[in-house]
Amino acid sequence: DWEDIVRFLRKLFELGEEVVIGDWHNHHREEIKRLIEWLEKHF
């Protein structure tokens, strides 16, 4: 279910905002944000 995936990604992203998950999070933050925005537009 796409909504569950979007919710999971958003939760992960919000957690990442508070607890910076090292370089991985910083590197992928923009991609995650773009992916969430893309999914919201399409689903």
Rank of each mutant, 00 (worst) to 15 (best):
D1K: 11
W2S: 01
W2A: 01
W2Q: 01
W2H: 01
E3H: 10
E3K: 10
D4A: 11
I5F: 13
I5W: 14
V6D: 02
V6T: 03
R7E: 12
R7L: 04
F8D: 05
F8G: 04
F8W: 13
L9I: 07
R10G: 04
R10P: 00
R10Y: 13
R10A: 09
K11D: 09
K11H: 07
K11S: 06
L12P: 00
L12D: 00
L12G: 00
L12F: 06
L12N: 00
F13S: 01
F13Q: 02
F13P: 00
F13M: 07
E14T: 06
L15N: 02
L15S: 04
L15A: 05
G16Q: 04
E17G: 13
E18Y: 10
E18P: 06
E18V: 12
E18T: 12
V19Q: 10
V19H: 09
V20P: 09
I21G: 08
I21T: 14
I21Q: 08
I21K: 15
I21V: 08
G22V: 03
G22K: 08
G22C: 11
G22T: 04
D23P: 02
D23C: 09
W24P: 05
W24D: 07
H25G: 14
H25V: 12
N26R: 08
N26I: 06
N26L: 04
N26Y: 04
H27T: 10
H27K: 12
H27G: 07
H28Q: 06
H28A: 13
R29A: 12
R29N: 10
E30V: 05
E30W: 07
E30P: 05
E31G: 12
E31A: 13
E31T: 14
E31M: 14
E31K: 14
I32V: 03
I32A: 02
I32C: 07
K33T: 09
K33P: 01
R34E: 06
L35F: 14
L35N: 01
E37P: 01
L39V: 07
L39T: 01
E40Y: 13
E40M: 14
E40T: 13
E40P: 01
K41N: 06
K41Q: 08
H42I: 14
H42R: 11
